[in-house]
Structures are given as structure tokens and as C-alpha cells.
Amino acid sequence: MDLIVCVKHVPDVSSAELRVDSSGREIDRAGLNYDINEWDDYALEAALILKEKHGGVVTVVSVGGEEVDRTLRRCLAKGADNAVRISDPKINTKDPFIVAKVLSAAIKTMRYDLILTGVQAGDDGYAITGPTLAEYLKIPHATLVKKIEVEDGRAVVWRELEGGVEEIVELDLPALVTVQTGIAELRYVSVLGIRMAMRRQIRTMQLSDLGLSPEEVASPWLAIEELYTPRVERRVEFIEGSPDEAASRIVEILRARGLI
């Protein structure tokens, strides 16, 4: 079974202080740690489990500059067989429609039964690339997938709907799924695995290898005009002081409301 996982290299923003750069449209990348997009880590995990069960090859693909090699190597260290980086300064990597088109052109040159992407990227949060890629490839898809079973040229997948309900969907292969977090427990990357991965080759592709013209990947469907801190009215009252002082103040608040 040939599996392709699309992975994005994204900044880990959960504890970081984000600053908008002088263009007003992008974040200042200085000091940020980059890693595999959380949803893609689960997509890779799901692919590795399918490979362990059914045999086959897992290929990870990413569109971006040389910096994405770190994420690709991490995937190799976890058990992916091949890694492909699509890099070309002419590709506008900020636009999900362009990224999907580029991915589709690359994937058309490969063998695949199932393509896995994340539900969304933690940086832009568009949730556009996966289903868009399926449309470019004209294959069936399902989003928000929490479980995958494969048999007889078909995949049965469980989609997460609202309110704790899951929809069971059958897809003819080849197909594409967008994977939701929690689909399986993530494996750890071993030190040995990392060391081995450092020596592995990452295949690179450019526009000329994909049969795409620069015009096809230059003008974005979506452009960010302005990036800014949300202007919300905060009702929050910050409790300052040492942890002990903060604890005393919280106890006071709870007592005043009869909660203790």
C-alpha cells in the first residue's frame, strides 16, 4: 500500500510571544521554534500504522524552503521511507490553493493508494489544502478523520462531527483523508532514528520538474493584507504578585462568592 503524507513545517506558537514584522503582514520569525504541524504528526502516525499492517511505502512531502528538511528528517526518523521537498522561490507558499496545486502536480508523478494531510495547519488554520488537493487529483476524500481501516481497495473512515457523533464513510481508493488529532498515540523519535535520518537523502523537486509554469503558482487566491493583535475588550482582571499572594486573592474571591 502506497501512502503519501503531506507535512507542513510550522512555528510552535503556544507559549511564544508573537510579534508582527515591519511588513505588517507576517510574524517575526526570530526566536520561534519550528516543528511538524501537530495534525500532520497524527497523519504520519496513521500512515505508519497502516504500513505496519498492510505493508507498503510511506512518502512524506512538503512544500517550502530548505528549513523544512528538519521536519522531513523527523518523519524519516519515525519510519517514513521517502521524503520529498518541493522548493522554488516562485511558489507562493502562503496560499493554500497554490500549495495544493503544487502538491497535486508532484503527487501525480508518484504512486499512491491513500493521501493523508492534517485537518488544518496550526499557523494559518485554513483547513483548505487537503480537500483542494483531492479536487485537483479528482479523487474522493473525507475530512476530520479519527479512524481508518483499509480492505479490498477501499478505506472505511470515521469522521468527527459535532456533538461527539462520528460518521462512518467508505471511500474507493485512491482517496485522500484529512486527519484529526488523537487518531492514534504518537510514537517517540529515537536518537538512533534521528542519527540514521541525518544520512538519508531528501529528494527535491522544482517547478520545472512538475510541469508547472511560474504564472500558475504566482498569483494567490488569498492575500493577507494585515496581521494584528485582536482588538478585543478584555474583562479580565490580572492578579499580580507572588504565587502565594495570587493564591490568597483567589481564595478571597471564591469565599466572597460562597464557592468555598
Binding site: 503556544s14 496550526g122 494559518d124 488569498l222 493577507i224 493584507e225 485582536p230 482588538r231
Partner: peptide, 11 residues
């Protein structure tokens, strides 16, 4: 974007 830390205006 970025888990709700920033807003953006998209054209």
C-alpha cells in the same frame, strides 16, 4: 491565525 493569537484581514 496562530491559534487565535493574531487576527488577519484577508483579501
Amino acid at each position: 491565525m496562530y491559534g487565535g493569537k493574531l487576527n488577519c484581514r484577508v483579501r
